[in-house]
Simulated assay, not measured.
Amino acid sequence: MSGATGVAVAVANSRVIDVYVKYTNMLVGRDKACRLGQYFARLLAYLVGQRIARLGKTAGRVEWLATLVKIQQVLATTRKMMRSGKFVNFAQMAARALVARNGEDEVVWALGLVNKLGMCVFMAADTLGLVGTTLGLVRLRDPARVARVAQRGWLFALAAQALSALYQLRTVAIRAADLRRVRCHVEKTGDAMGDRECATEEHALATQRAGLSKQLVAAALDLSIPIKGLGILPLNEGLVALAGTMTSLMGAQDVLSKAAA
């Protein structure tokens, strides 16, 4: 009995379980986990397909490929179900951005608005495709066109996100250059208070730069997915799947850090 009690106490006080429960309680956490599984299965399916192309078909390889494709499709559908109707959220955010700008930089504001509108179009078309194609509740005249509209919306949203990150990184670089000049002056005058203020500002800029750099990398990698989906560039399937896997890991890490906080 004491052994069972000890196990119960360990489970009740487990930090790992606490983080796991917080992570899985968040819809975005479950979405990121499904996304990681989806793109990792896509990457493995590509690798197995390449192996089949080189070494030929065997029953085991064909079965393994079919299983991976099925996992990818099931997880993709699961994610569509979880985000269905979310276009309303992005429409509301876009409307709020139009109503209240709150003194935001014009370029950042405009690119943020494009991002929200693009995501709204993506989510709306995605939901329509789910209802019409996957669930068959409505009849679509051209399901492929709906899918292309969704991809275009996502493409514009990601492009706006990448451009916004680049623009803000440039602003941060200008502020950092100004701060270095202030730092030189402070060091010459021996101003202790100014030195502390400079250190605080440097830390803030470093944190902002890291966040924007991560945003830029994630957007640039994810751009490969709609670019390939729309046939704009003949990108390698393996590289696209790898890009999706990497950004999924980055997203899951962000959610996990919030759950662990």
Rank of each mutant, 00 (worst) to 15 (best):
A243L: 01
L256A: 14
G231R: 05
A97C: 09
I17M: 11
K86P: 00
C198Q: 07
L111W: 06
D195W: 08
P234A: 13
K228C: 11
V99D: 15
Q208V: 02
R152E: 11
L47Y: 11
L117W: 02
L44K: 09
R96I: 05
R196D: 13
L239N: 05
R139F: 09
N25Y: 03
K32V: 03
V99L: 10
E201Y: 03
L68N: 05
L75W: 02
L68I: 06
V99T: 14
R181V: 06
G6E: 15
L68M: 08
L117R: 01
K22S: 11
R170Q: 09
R181C: 07
R181S: 13
A147F: 05
A94V: 02
Q50F: 03
Y20R: 04
L55V: 06
M26S: 11
C120R: 02
E187F: 07
A177Q: 12
W109S: 07
L230P: 08
P143W: 06
K80V: 01
G29T: 10
G132F: 02
L212K: 00
P226T: 14
V28K: 10
A95P: 00
K57Q: 14
R101L: 06
L55N: 13
V182M: 07
L111P: 08
V138R: 03
L47T: 10
M81K: 07
V108I: 12
G85K: 07
R181W: 05
L65N: 12
A218P: 00
R79I: 04
L113C: 04
N13Y: 02
L223S: 07
T245S: 12
A241C: 05
C184P: 00
N236M: 04
R54L: 14
V9R: 12
R30N: 13
A144Y: 07
G60M: 12
D18M: 04
G251D: 08
Y23S: 09
K214R: 12
G211H: 01
A210M: 05
K86Q: 10
I174C: 03
R15V: 03
V240M: 08
L130G: 01
G3Y: 06
C198W: 04
D191L: 04
L230W: 08
T171S: 15
G103R: 03
V19G: 04
G49I: 03
L47D: 15
V9K: 07
M93F: 07
R183G: 01
G29E: 11
V21W: 05
